[in-house]
């Protein structure tokens, strides 16, 4: 396993995976979208709004899983100093944030016809909103330092602190939600509970697969960007260390 901790070796593997992930992504979306929009039945209670589920649920699952990946990568980075882990965490964060935001907005669009309002302070929605804030904090902290490595380390610590807090946040939000159930909002009937029929599982799983393939594709591309950033920085540093070369280059320009 240690072999893959070397960024060069890992990136060779990642670049080999890339065309497959991209191909799978295109293929799965090509199957999932017609299935989700056309070939699957409407829910007997929710009608066609259930089709929002096919893009909402995978976004929610990936939003959560990417944070988990980020936290695991951050722990690996802080404990074993694997530069690769820092790359993964940094590259994954913005994608996870967008998944979480997508989950929230599609949730609102689903909530309006089903609950009669765009937003309820439902435990799951509230937790996802706080997760989005955690992502935003992580991204802001990572970009706030002149020194790249300092930003990576600070963000890694924050990701770990956040991952310890997530269960506590979920617990307190659920507790808070049951406390105020009566006074805030009465959900009509089962809320967003869908009795998932087998015909709905096919679009849901293909969509899920498409999301994962998309995530992997973008992750590899973003890791390339991060590696290039590091290389550019190093090149700049060596240039600054050899002012002769720098002046010559400036003259040549």
């Amino acid at each position: 396993m240690h072999k893959y901790a070397n960024p060069t070796v890992f990136m060779r593997l990642a670049n080999a995976v890339l065309p497959w992930a991209a191909g799978a992504c295109v293929l799965l979306f090509a199957v999932a979208i017609p299935l989700a929009l056309y070939a699957s039945p409407a829910d007997y209670q929710q009608g066609d709004t259930v089709r929002i589920m096919y893009i909402h649920v995978p976004a929610a699952i990936l939003g959560e899983m990417v944070y988990g990946l980020m936290a695991a990568a951050s722990a690996t980075y802080l404990i074993w100093r694997h530069q690769l882990a820092a790359l993964i965490a940094r590259a994954a964060a913005p994608i996870g944030a967008i998944f979480t935001a997508l989950c929230l907005i599609t949730g609102m669009l689903w909530g309006q016809p089903m609950w009669g309002t765009f937003w309820v302070w439902d435990a799951r929605l509230t937790s996802m909103l706080l997760l989005l804030f955690l992502y935003v904090g992580y991204l802001a902290l990572g970009d706030a330092f002149e020194d790249q490595e300092r930003g990576e380390k600070a963000a890694a610590v924050l990701a770990l602190v956040g991952s310890v807090n997530i269960p506590i946040i979920i617990f307190s939000v659920e507790w808070w939600n049951t406390l105020h159930q009566g006074s805030i909002f009465k959900m009509n009937g089962e809320g967003m509970k869908v009795t998932v029929s087998p015909e709905m599982l096919a679009p849901l799983f293909t969509m899920m697969g498409a999301y994962v393939a998309f995530f992997v594709t973008i992750l590899v591309l973003r890791m390339r960007i991060e590696i290039l950033n590091a290389k550019i920085r190093n090149a700049r540093i060596t240039q600054a260390a050899a002012p002769m070369v720098a002046t010559q280059a400036a003259q040549a320009r």
Partner: peptide, 10 residues
């Protein structure tokens, strides 16, 4: 504040 406020919610 951006980092800490979500952690203050509980």
């Amino acid at each position: 504040s951006l980092l800490i406020l979500p952690l203050y919610v509980p």
